[in-house]
Nucleic acid binder design. Structure first.
Length: 554
RNA sequence: GGCCCUAUGGUCAAGCGGCUAAGACGCAACCCUCUCAAGGUUGAAUCGAGAGUUCGAUUCUCUCUAGGGUCACCA
């Protein structure tokens, strides 16, 4: 008489270790009271997307704040969808965002005593566990073909029954071990399924760290735990890996809530203690007026690479993501005038329960505030790094004009009323580009946008007078008084107020005068503080540009 | 469709039986001002619906509705 034990011995004849051996090899971690072990478990099926980054940030904060361990496990069991090199890319991007791993898969090597951290290298561990399940009758081989499964599904649908492999529909669960052994020896392809003992009419209750207790129908599906390619499915790998890697809190997207009953039954059958769970809300986007989950496949803009290319400092994206994870973070930043996520204490219980809509304006806001806090030198260095990869024109200009760039970036930087006009590195060139001679020539190719209501001759006279009389050594306020005087000499009121009182008496007011100078020097009607612009351009360049403008007016 | 999660302004939200229902982003107006930013002041805008419990419900219960998620040899 052939038993499941015999079947297990045959299928897993290479396995000579037991679960007890694994328990010894991967013992409970010796960590201080309250330390959490969290993990980021991406599959290498494409780019790192916003939702994954958000989850990894939460994992990271929960581990760090509790002086625990944050590790990365690569879930590369889906060989069909795997994209070559995306595992390494994931690790690199995480590092770019300063989300440092304590252990796990690092791209080209593993760190830590609980590995290997790539599921494709853990086959022997899964086999030990499945062998055990088969020995105790909780796992069995299934020979059903995809076509058969599809047929069953259609019958179930027609009968308005729950689709799936369960109860009487779980054909192979009743195959005698002897027959199974013969078919395997015969070379029939098979998968291994979990034998569920659950009852769909009963509820299991489990505690979620974010949502509280959740009650769902018990699992009664005989899910596949080992695929025909010999690799485990997510459900099984989750139970085995999170147990033997000693994860304390499993933080994952809320789309996993529905399959929690499977996981609970699996942990129980294996004799493992259930980890704590925290199901985080998903990030959504508006699509034709409907909200929906940001998807890796449909929404390439969710690729965090887009935010890097878009020139957002990594701190800005992190601050934004943390502000939606813990909304009190935003108030904290305002109270402390600090956007450093390391200094903030994260709380799972303060997480929002609802899916959130991605808000570009809010990201830009954080980015503006954060960029405004950089020193000019720091800003310059970041621009150098960024533009080298994403904007070669900018890179060319700023690397050749280091001092000028730093000075330009430094205009009205710092202090209470700091200038906040850069929401990303992409804004830099449009705003300060005119400082560079090449760019200036390019801008004025289409002409100078002088005020057409003012006579060209008048503008010419004012500009020439300005070139002669301007004193570069004066401080901002004093200097501006000389601009007023300049205007008065040419028939302009010294302030807008005076002009408004008696428009007939003047050609315009000092604002018009400043505009002429601005247009001549910058080729645009707006610019940062004029006085600073003069200081940075220097006398020769200012006079040269005035002459170009005057020529244009002829 | 079954099951699960969720429900306060356009967005992110505070609130945990009694409040003129915080705050932030965005938006609008005004002030400041040499432009643009920044800053200041003000404003518009929210408790999904219906029952119950209660002296009193945004808050507790139920029903409905809406949105989302999930029902694979994908994770």
């Amino acid at each position: 008489m052939i038993t499941y034990k015999d079947l297990a011995d045959y299928i897993f004849k290479d396995v000579n270790e037991t679960i007890e051996d694994l328990e010894k090899k991967y013992p409970e971690r010796k960590l201080p009271e309250g330390a959490e072990v969290t993990r980021f478990a991406p599959s290498p099926t494409g780019f790192l997307h916003l939702g994954s980054l958000s989850t990894s940030l939460i994992d990271y904060k929960v581990a760090k704040d509790s002086k625990g361990i944050f590790y990365l496990r690569l879930e590369d069991t889906d060989t069909k969808r795997e994209i070559e090199g995306s595992g390494e890319e994931l690790v690199r991007q995480l590092k770019y965002f300063g989300i440092e791993l304590d252990e796990g898969y690092f791209g080209n090597h593993d760190v830590g005593d609980y590995g290997p951290y790539r599921q494709s290298e853990r086959a022997h561990i899964y086999r030990i566990c499945i062998k055990h399940l088969m020995e105790i009758g909780r796992a069995y081989p299934c020979f059903c073909s995809a076509e058969q499964l599809e047929e069953t599904r259609q019958i179930q649908e027609a009968n308005k029954e729950i689709p799936g492999y369960y109860g009487d529909y779980a054909i192979c669960r009743n195959i005698e071990p002897e027959e199974a052994l013969n078919r395997i020896k015969n070379g029939d392809p098979y998968v291994i399924r979990f034998r569920s003992l659950g009852n769909h009419n009963n509820k299991v209750v489990f505690h979620d760290e974010i949502r509280g207790d959740i009650a769902i129908a018990e699992n009664d599906m005989d899910v596949v735990i080992l695929k025909s390619d010999g690799l485990p499915t997510y459900h099984f790998a989750h139970a085995v890996d999170d147990h033997f890697m000693r994860t304390t809190v499993v933080i994952r997207g809320e789309e996993w809530i529905a399959s929690a009953p499977i996981h609970i039954e699996l942990f129980n059958a294996l004799g493992f203690k259930l980890p704590r769970y925290a199901h985080v809300p998903v990030i959504m986007k508006l699509d034709n007026g409907n909200k929906r989950k940001l998807s890796k496949r449909k929404d390439p803009e969710a690729n965090v690479k887009n935010f890097i290319e878009g020139g957002y400092p990594n701190e800005a994206l992190k601050a934004y993501l943390l502000s939606i994870a813990n909304s009190n973070f935003e108030e904290w930043t305002m109270e402390n005038n600090c956007y450093d996520i390391e200094k903030f204490t994260f709380s799972l219980s303060k997480m929002s329960l609802d899916g959130i809509l991605f808000d570009q304006d809010k990201l830009s806001y954080f980015s503006k505030e954060i960029i405004a806090q950089f020193t000019a030198e720091d800003f310059y260095n970041r621009l150098l790094v960024w533009s080298k990869d994403y904007d070669v024109t900018l890179y060319d200009h700023i690397s050749k004009n280091k001092d000028m760039t730093i000075n330009a970036l430094n205009i009205e930087r710092g202090g209470e009323k700091a200038r906040k006009d850069f929401s990303s590195y992409k804004d830099v060139y449009p705003i300060i580009g005119f400082f560079y001679k090449d760019r200036y020539e390019e801008i004025i190719k289409t002409g100078f946008p002088f005020n057409e209501a003012i006579d060209k001759e008048v503008i010419k006279d004012v500009l020439l007078d300005f070139a002669k009389s301007n004193d570069y050594s004066l401080a901002n306020d004093v200097w501006f008084n000389t601009v007023k005087e300049l205007g008065v000499r040419h028939g302009f009121a010294e302030s807008g107020k005076i002009y408004k009182q008696n428009k007939e008496a003047y050609k315009g007011h000092v604002g018009d005068v400043a505009e002429m100078i601005r247009v001549a020097l910058c080729g645009a009607k707006n610019s940062p503080n004029l006085h600073s612009v003069l200081q940075i351009l220097g006398k020769d360049e200012v006079n040269r540009r005035i002459n170009v403008a005057v020529d244009y007016l002829k």
